[in-house]
Simulated assay, not measured.
Amino acid sequence: MLVAAAVCPQTPLIVTGLPELRAACRTAVAALRAARPDVLVVVGGAETTRSYDGAAAGTLRPWGFDVTVGEGAPVLPLSLTVGRRLLNDPEPPSGPPPATGAEGVPAQVLARDAGGVPAQAVAFAAAPAECRAIGAGLAALGRVALLVMADGSACLTPRAPGRYDEAAQPYDDLIAEAVGTADAAALAALDPVEADRLWVTGRAALQVLAGAAEGTPLTGTLLMRSSPYGVGYFAAVWS
């Protein structure tokens, strides 16, 4: 059963820049840990679908950041590497104090270190039904929390990585509304063809979340939304 979820951007810039968005992601991660899940899983898009155990390593060196998670040869895709890094973010959250557990212990220390957190990659091109099935399988593991790494459209402005498209903003609005209200049905209905055209790399991961949350009464909060480089970034919590 899915007991909590967080949606954060997969951009490597979240590691060293974008301080307000990074702080919102820390708040989202704290909420996941405050839910005291039996299992915490990082979910993100990749070229192929596969699972990784908690010992798998990843690096951001190809993107110009001397940041590595785990030990051994780096095998994690970008999205899962950034997610694992967020789980071990050394800086305290800004704003109000983090949520605490029943014994008053800060939520950040209620979960095991991110080095033991398994990860699930889902192919960018995976069909919606396949994504939802992966999510349902994760939700069946027990009391599960998901850290979902997902960007919106990369076609929001003329200087965006993708070619500017006036349809990108409405599509991003739809995603923001869905992650902000825990609307699993809306995420499940995302059109993969349109998502591909608008460079929505987070579509498959969001539909894994939809599959995990199906039939679960969660509420959502959109902590922050931004698009500083013409790419849609979201930080949201479902609980």
Rank of each mutant, 00 (worst) to 15 (best):
M1C: 13
V3W: 00
A5T: 00
A5V: 03
V7Y: 00
T11C: 05
V15F: 00
G17F: 11
E20W: 11
L21I: 11
A23N: 15
T27P: 08
A28C: 05
A30C: 15
R33H: 02
R33F: 04
R36C: 09
P37M: 05
D38K: 01
V39L: 10
L40Q: 00
V43M: 06
G44T: 08
S51H: 10
D53N: 00
G54H: 04
A55Q: 00
A56Y: 03
A57W: 03
R61Y: 09
G64D: 12
F65L: 12
V67C: 10
V67I: 10
T68W: 06
V69C: 01
E71C: 07
E71A: 10
L80K: 07
R84Y: 01
R85A: 15
L87V: 09
N88E: 15
N88S: 15
P96N: 07
P97S: 08
T100Y: 11
A102R: 06
E103D: 15
V105D: 14
P106Q: 13
A107I: 05
Q108K: 14
R112K: 08
D113H: 15
G115F: 12
G116Q: 01
P118Q: 07
A119G: 12
A121T: 08
A123G: 03
A123K: 06
F124N: 11
F124A: 15
F124W: 12
F124Q: 13
P128D: 03
P128T: 02
P128W: 02
I134S: 02
G135N: 02
G137S: 04
A139N: 11
R143M: 05
A145M: 00
L147W: 00
D151E: 14
L156M: 15
L156I: 12
G162K: 08
D165C: 14
E166I: 15
A167C: 14
Q169I: 13
P170L: 02
Y171G: 06
D173S: 13
L174Y: 04
E177V: 14
A178R: 13
V179C: 09
G180F: 00
A182C: 13
A182N: 13
A186N: 11
A186S: 14
A188M: 07
A188L: 01
L190A: 08
D191I: 05
D191T: 05
V193P: 03
E194D: 09
R197S: 10
W199E: 14
V200Q: 04
V200K: 03
A205R: 07
A205D: 05
L206G: 10
Q207G: 11
L209H: 07
A210Q: 12
A213K: 07
P217K: 10
L218G: 00
T219K: 09
G220Q: 12
M224G: 13
R225L: 09
G230D: 13
Y233N: 08
A235N: 05
W238P: 00
